[in-house]
Nucleic acid binder design. Structure first.
Length: 151
DNA sequence: GCCAACGTTGGC
DNA sequence: GCCAACGTTGGC
């Protein structure tokens, strides 16, 4: 069972949006970066995922969701009305993948980016590497525990 | 295959 | 709103 972290702008999809849709499934689509997509494709049903809020007032890890359906072709790539439309993608050879996720819980409090940067043992986490832009990344069990135990 | 130009991400 | 860092594109 692997663990992951995904970035999201809370104005788009926040942990509260997941909470409101408890017991429902939310598609994680619109990922348009190859490295991030490759990680998405490795997610398995049951994997747990940190939700990280970016580009907002309170930046940091806000909660946990779970993968309920592993990767499948992201339908938004075929939808010419979608901002995520990709004209170079075909049904035969889809470029982009999505997974389905569901709410697990909010953390007791938001773990801020500053805090995450200051924790020891997280040096390998792509999130805090300089200039990092990866929106889907693996989290080791050890990193997961370090972050969780600070909440 | 190189690399300049361009667009995007995301913290500040 | 700024801008550094990075990914992508496309001419050559």
């Amino acid at each position: 069972m692997s663990k992951w972290l995904v970035k999201t702008e809370p104005s788009e999809c926040s942990i509260d949006d997941f909470a409101k849709a408890e017991h429902q499934t939310i598609p994680w689509d619109g990922v348009r970066n190859y490295q991030a997509r490759n990680f998405l494709a490795k997610m398995a049903e049951g994997d747990e995922v940190f939700i990280y809020h970016s580009s907002c007032k309170h930046i940091g890890i806000a909660g946990i969701v779970r993968v309920v359906h592993s990767a499948y072709p992201d339908p938004t790539q075929f939808d010419s009305d979608s901002p995520y439309y990709d004209e170079k993608s075909t049904k035969e050879k889809p470029r982009w993948q999505a997974v389905d996720m569901t709410y697990v819980r909010k953390l007791k409090r938001l773990i801020s980016l500053d805090e995450i940067k200051s924790m020891s043992g997280l040096e390998g986490l792509p999130l805090i590497r300089r200039g990092n832009r990866l929106s889907v990344m693996p989290v080791t069990d050890e990193q997961w525990q370090i972050i969780l135990s600070s909440a």
